[in-house]
Amino acid sequence: MNIIAELKKRPKVEVEMEILERVLQNEMAFAQENIREFEDAIVQLAFYSIYKGNHKGNMIYLYMDAIFKDEDNPTVIERIYYGVTESGFCTGKDYGTFNDLEQAVKKFNSVSFKYECLPVFRMYEAKLKNEKETIQFSVSEIREVSLREEIKKGFLDIDLDSMKLIKETEDRNEARSMATEL
């Protein structure tokens, strides 16, 4: 597997190219170079920006970490890869640890893909045509395409230019409780 090509398959994945190339040349030597006194050698290799729904603005990270012994003369005994979703705490709990970079990259890609495929419901506020009255409505991102076409064709008396996004969520019930579903 070409690790760099695999990571670049996912849209919006940022790859730390210089670091990743050095890791691929010699993982253990790279980990040894990056050990700091009393710390693990945690190095970010790639990250994915989440841009959908409630998770918008958060990140998914791919890290390399090195386990070492002997604080006076640190020696790398193992290197692991793991990922973290959301706020970036280096816990590894969200999608685990891997001794193999290939496995970690596959998991990183599948987690980022999951976030791209979340169904999103949007709540909008818009003015009715030729009126001062505004309405609020919710619509799924899939239905939104045809809704906009219906508005353009005049089937619905909504001023398309006045549509203002209020909120996005993956929870359909939340969207429906906030506004009428179209």
Results as ranks from 00 to 15, higher is better:
2 N>H: 08
4 I>A: 03
5 A>M: 12
6 E>A: 13
7 L>A: 03
7 L>I: 05
12 K>C: 11
21 E>G: 04
24 L>F: 03
27 E>M: 10
29 A>Y: 14
32 Q>E: 06
38 F>W: 09
38 F>C: 07
39 E>L: 13
40 D>T: 13
41 A>R: 08
41 A>V: 04
42 I>C: 10
43 V>M: 07
44 Q>F: 00
45 L>I: 07
46 A>K: 01
49 S>K: 14
51 Y>C: 07
55 H>Y: 15
56 K>Q: 11
59 M>S: 13
59 M>Y: 15
59 M>E: 14
61 Y>T: 03
61 Y>H: 09
61 Y>N: 07
63 Y>M: 09
63 Y>P: 00
68 F>R: 10
70 D>C: 10
70 D>V: 06
71 E>R: 12
72 D>R: 13
72 D>P: 02
73 N>L: 08
74 P>G: 07
75 T>R: 11
77 I>P: 00
78 E>L: 14
80 I>E: 12
80 I>G: 04
81 Y>S: 06
82 Y>C: 06
84 V>F: 03
85 T>Y: 08
87 S>L: 08
87 S>N: 10
88 G>F: 04
89 F>G: 05
92 G>E: 04
92 G>R: 03
94 D>R: 02
95 Y>C: 14
96 G>Q: 06
97 T>R: 11
106 K>S: 14
106 K>N: 15
109 N>S: 12
109 N>M: 12
112 S>P: 03
114 K>H: 15
118 L>I: 11
119 P>L: 05
123 M>S: 06
123 M>Y: 00
124 Y>G: 01
124 Y>R: 01
125 E>V: 08
125 E>R: 09
126 A>W: 02
127 K>E: 06
127 K>M: 07
128 L>A: 07
129 K>W: 09
135 I>D: 02
135 I>S: 04
137 F>S: 04
137 F>W: 02
139 V>G: 03
140 S>A: 04
141 E>R: 00
142 I>C: 06
143 R>T: 08
145 V>P: 03
145 V>Q: 09
145 V>C: 08
145 V>A: 10
148 R>E: 06
149 E>V: 08
150 E>I: 10
152 K>V: 10
152 K>H: 04
153 K>T: 11
156 L>A: 10
156 L>D: 04
157 D>R: 10
158 I>C: 04
159 D>Y: 03
160 L>H: 06
160 L>M: 12
161 D>L: 09
163 M>H: 01
164 K>N: 13
164 K>M: 04
165 L>A: 05
165 L>V: 04
167 K>C: 07
167 K>V: 08
170 E>N: 15
171 D>P: 04
171 D>E: 09
175 A>W: 00
177 S>N: 13
179 A>F: 02
180 T>F: 09
181 E>A: 11
181 E>H: 07
181 E>R: 07
182 L>N: 09
